[in-house]
Design a protein around this nucleic acid. Structure first.
Lengths: 211, 211
DNA sequence: CCCTGTGAATTTGTTCACAGCT
DNA sequence: AGCTGTGAACAAATTCACAGGG
């Protein structure tokens, strides 16, 4: 599976997958590219290109078979393999993440949380043990963790990120308001809430921009 | 100020602004494009193009003057005008947002929260009054709110979003795992945590992709 | 028909390369 | 020398437009 695939495409594929799951639960079995496009807010051509990328082919008369796309997507996105996730920073946001991932999405689950506050360490929150951040590398190794959520204050984000990488983390979602500097090969997804709001504020003013 | 400006550029400008603020607090007065680029994880050419877009011009010998860029950025991003923000959904994530924006960034502040749970309504959390979601439109009008965070369960996200728009909201940050369908002219920024993690999981596997 | 798959064209975004300045 | 500003080249992403098929 060496095909070059863009970040945007991967995002859309994840969105499609979620939509198709829902439709499947609701009993639907087939749909057309333009229908999926409408639900994902994407053009029909885009949907077709994206599905081409995962190697799935629909039929012209019945469109796409939901079960079959889901299978292709699962194979392509490698969703079967269970991947353990760590969370660093059990503040409000960290707890929101724990709560959000509790139970569901069994193949991506938060198996360990970390915080520096002794008030929090030792406890179990939403089914997840909270360790002292000092044990970071050890626990990551023990639990075979290679992914992480970083939800710590910006001042310590870089230091914690370095330790995550030292502990074997290969990809992380960064909520801290800092651009991290990490070795190539470590994938960082920025989730910058302040920037998101500023961006919305910027575009919300000006009438009808479709930027 | 009719110049077309891309979403990516606006994001980067917000990041620059934050970095420059920090440098300014630390007493630095000038920097070069490649320095800012390093801090923002962006190429020097990109920085220069972006700053060109806001109409700021540096000098070749001293580089950019931090105070002056900040002034240009403030003018361009329209940061002086105070804009009130609403929050719908006072769960874990909602509280994280309230906490995050408490006090700081005085020009973008959460002035009203909403929830359906009577346990939460009527209380003041992190300095923000929590109203019953039934009063949504009224309070938005009263408080002159045109921006919002949407942090409600996916099943109700579309309905709430429609009401936000009816109440005068022109832009929102959506944390719910649904693609919203809103009239043109309303700007939506998707903050999809599950997709972010799935994306990271996808790329974290494959060694050194720079996608 | 109305679908899918896909070359070709287009638009958008980024980097290269260098002129001009001090 | 080393910087900025920017045309030109390049790369990426998206849309157009249409062939092919039941």
């Amino acid at each position: 599976m060496a095909m070059r695939i863009s970040e945007r495409t991967v995002e859309r594929l994840c969105v499609y997958r979620r939509i198709l799951f829902r439709l499947q639960r609701e009993g639907q079995t087939h749909l057309y590219s333009h229908q999926l496009g409408k639900l994902a807010r994407v053009s029909a051509e885009q949907v077709r290109r994206d599905l081409m990328a995962v190697g799935y082919t629909g039929s012209a008369q019945r469109g796409y078979e939901i079960e079959a796309i889901l299978a292709s997507l699962a194979a392509f996105l490698d969703v079967e393999r269970v991947q353990n996730v760590a969370l660093v920073g059990v503040g409000n946001l960290g707890r929101a993440l724990l709560h959000h991932f509790k139970g569901r999405r069994p193949t991506l689950r938060i198996v360990a949380a970390f915080d520096a506050d002794p008030e929090k360490t030792g406890r179990v929150i939403d089914g997840c043990r909270c360790h002292d951040v000092g044990e970071l590398e050890t626990v990551l190794r023990e639990q075979d963790v290679h992914l992480a959520f970083l939800a710590v204050p910006p001042e310590v984000a870089q230091a914690v990120a370095d330790r995550l990488v030292a502990g074997g983390v290969r990809g992380l979602v960064n909520f801290a308001a800092v651009r991290l500097s990490l070795p190539a090969g470590v994938f960082v997804e920025e989730m910058d809430i302040s920037v998101a709001l500023e961006k919305v504020a910027f575009y919300a003013g000006r009438g009808s921009e479709a930027p």
